[in-house]
Amino acid sequence: MTVSQLHSFGTELETAGVACMWVSLGLRAPAVMRSSQQRPLWLAVLGAAAALTLHLPWFIDLLHQATGPTHLTALARNLFGVLTSAAVLDFVLLAVRGCHTYALYGLAGLFMVPLVWLDAAAEPHLHHAIPHASHPTPSTSYWAVLIAVNLSTNVVCVVACWRYSRASRDLSLRVGLRLFGLGAAFAGLYWLLSAVYVGVRYSWIPPISPLLLGCYAFSRASAIFVPLGAAVAVALRRMRIVWQLWPLWRDLVNAVPAVSLTQTRQRGLALLQRSGPLDLRLYRIVIEIRDAILDLRAHIPHAVLTEVRVRLEREGAPPAEEDARVTACWLRIARSIKAGGTPPLRGDLTAPVLGGADLPGEIEFLRKVAKADTSPQIRRIAAHLSQSIEKH
């Protein structure tokens, strides 16, 4: 890849990264309006997105066409960058300490004053740049202050994100901090190379600068997207569980209609209906399955439960799945007996197994039961024992 191709690819990557940042900001805006804890992160990425947008050549051209050529565009970009550095550190410290560090914004304001003064005091200029064969504009002092502020804050951010992400037990926070730290690493490398370029004009530095900024943009966009991504992952997992439990729920509710609190009978509608949050719908399905199991237990003699377990042990059922397979088998038998009009039994009718000690454990157990219910072996044993019971 030639130098020009590398620069072109980096510019395209930077544009795509900035677009992703704005998309992420838009998607996260509703949640941010409701949560003050997420606002610092959102504002930090907003400032970074604004600064990077003002760095894109095509956007600068559009802006200059609208307002006329001015050095204030470059100055605004760099001031946004300094303010963003303060917001980034505030977010990191908020994540690890639980409180804002408002002094950082005052410190950022102190650094912005000399930048504005150095820009105003310099000779007339249009761009803030480090040309290949002349002095930096507006001045070397301006770039020294700008690089020092951005490089130091990014180094602190990388160290803090790495240190505290390792100590955090919250997966979303851990991933978010590491993505934020990765973005700070790309930004820090960009400013480090800018410092090198001020002193030594290596020709390979300018072409890779857009590439670093593009990686920085994608890291920041990913960091702000972590909470939404985690919520989507949880929702998809719950949808998958509902989909897995649906056939078992349908058969049990058909056998014991009284346990059902909903009229939905189509599998896909359980995922699409908006009658309540998905986690509540999943909880309701679990409750209805459990109630149906308790009802059907009254149609199974204890001797049949023993026979089911003996049959499965004889055919080599995996020990980890034994309880789930036994439950799936006797539920099939109980549905058959109840459908034949046999009245419920009396005496000790406690269900042998209902799952784990908590809701996640019970859900996992019912998933195993639903899987076992589709087994040809379970269906064969249940059909054989059902026929034997009917004959007697």
Rank of each mutant, 00 (worst) to 15 (best):
A29C: 06
A29P: 01
A29F: 15
P30G: 04
P30L: 04
M33Y: 11
M33T: 09
M33S: 06
R34S: 12
R34Q: 14
S35D: 15
S36I: 00
R39E: 00
P40F: 03
L41G: 03
L41Q: 07
L41R: 02
W42S: 03
L43G: 07
A44M: 14
V45S: 12
L46T: 14
A48Q: 13
A49C: 07
A49F: 05
A50M: 15
A50V: 15
A51H: 00
L52I: 05
L54I: 02
L56N: 07
P57M: 08
P57S: 11
W58S: 11
D61R: 15
L62R: 13
L63R: 12
H64G: 02
H64L: 05
H64Q: 14
Q65K: 13
Q65G: 14
T67Y: 10
P69I: 07
L72N: 12
L72S: 11
A74G: 13
A74C: 02
A76S: 12
N78C: 06
L79K: 00
F80K: 00
G81V: 03
G81Q: 08
V82E: 01
V82S: 04
V82I: 15
V82A: 06
T84F: 02
T84D: 01
V88W: 08
L89H: 04
F91E: 08
V92P: 00
L93W: 15
V96R: 13
R97W: 10
R97H: 13
C99G: 08
C99R: 14
C99A: 13
H100L: 12
Y105G: 00
Y105C: 01
G106V: 09
L107D: 08
A108C: 06
F111I: 05
M112L: 11
V113K: 02
P114Q: 09
L115Y: 03
V116G: 07
W117T: 11
L118V: 10
D119E: 12
D119L: 03
A120F: 10
A120I: 06
A121W: 06
A122L: 10
E123P: 07
P124Y: 11
P124E: 09
H125T: 10
H127L: 13
H128N: 07
A129N: 12
I130D: 08
I130F: 07
P131F: 08
S134W: 05
P136T: 00
T137N: 05
P138S: 09
S139I: 12
T140L: 13
